[in-house]
Design a protein around this nucleic acid. Structure first.
Lengths: 204, 204
DNA sequence: ACTAAAAGCGGAGGTGCCTCCGTTTATTTA
DNA sequence: TAAATAAACGGAGGCACCTCCGCTTTTAGT
């Protein structure tokens, strides 16, 4: 009960997704990609059979990889958040830090916009699966921090704010994302916020 | 736009469920009754086709009366809560008021017990449909008030409590209703509470 | 009592969900 | 390279959802 000698055989006991067979890997990736597209165009209740069909695999294959709809949605969701956050790094390299921040926030707004209508089901998923919630929101605020700190550091935005302030300022985004003017209003909010952030920049 | 002359034709603009045809009424009632039974025995995800089958009507009839599963569940739920609360009046007539209160609380516990497992779906329904929530909880506390006030009035329980105190004291019932000892523990809670309520009764 | 119109009935049919398992394909071993 | 084994595939089949509409029953008017 104490020692498991065979345990030391495995050299990497890290987050060890065991390697899939080549075809399996291919199919899985394909499914996630197609699912993202189909969910985007038909909503979160889209037919799983359509997803399988469009991905060119049998329905059985879909279910083997993702035993429930929620599993699939979760993977897609994580991937999207990941993509959004990864963009933070790229933007930071290609633009002045304040512009990078602004652009990223704009994308953030667009991303939330995508999730309109999915609200109910997605909220249920996020309530049920609290790991998912904390993981993704952690990831988002990390991206935010990276951008804000860079901009503060080189003096393009004021120094008396941090990432959580900005995130908090953006929180209005979440409310009532179903009205027609929502998107524009949110973009205006971002601009306004950036003006506020730039004002007084450089003063020590 | 101002006056609608035809409006005065209708003599009763109250909560006017327009009268159903005799057969329709019959079928509707039958469906609700059967649905209550089937939900109780198979859980809230029971097949609607089974309900229709057992009620001896076509699936189309079920859907005409209850366009979605939630509609049906809601009606069944309301009916059950109504039944529970109506029992308060009957108990009050047949028993001394403290006994009536105790017995009613016991039934209340049993009723909650029935809802074990339905937890998730039902909670979603109650979150979504907040009218349902306020209606039913209002009804429950009204029943409680009736019983408590009667018992206080004739001195069988102490006078320094009111219905909301008792309801609050029962709130432990809602937590973790899925363990095996839950029911017994809840019954003990009721007893304990009653002892506390009886103690000091009659002292002015 | 008779009849037209309104109201209601019910189930066939098209679609989606999900499981199960015989067949195919990748990988390992020799 | 070839055979053996393990892994993965995919779709048929069974069940449930829900809509649509031709048929039946009730109701109201005479």
């Amino acid at each position: 009960m104490a020692f498991e000698p065979s345990a030391s055989v495995e050299p990497k006991p890290e987050t060890a997704e065991k390697p899939l067979r080549a075809d399996a890997r291919r199919n899985r990736d394909r499914l996630v990609e197609v699912a993202a597209a189909v969910f985007a165009e038909r909503g979160i209740d889209a037919s799983l059979e359509e997803i399988a069909r469009r991905a060119g695999v049998g329905i059985g294959t879909l279910y083997r990889h993702f035993p429930t709809r929620e599993h699939l949605v979760e993977v897609v969701y994580r991937r999207e958040v990941e993509g959004l956050c990864a963009a933070a790094g790229e933007l930071a390299q290609k633009h002045p830090s304040d512009v990078a921040l602004e652009e990223w926030m704009r994308r953030f707004v667009d991303y939330i916009a995508t999730k309109r209508g999915l609200a109910t089901s997605l909220r249920i998923l996020l309530t049920t699966n609290s790991t998912l919630f904390s993981d993704t929101s952690g990831r988002v605020s990390q991206a935010m921090r990276q951008l804000v700190e860079a901009a503060v550091a080189d003096g393009t935005i004021r120094a008396d704010v941090d990432a959580s302030d900005v995130l908090h300022a953006l929180s209005g985004i979440y409310s009532a994302p179903d009205t027609p003017e929502w998107r524009d209003r949110s973009r205006r909010l971002v601009k306004l916020l950036m003006d506020g952030l730039r004002f007084g920049a450089g003063k020590s």
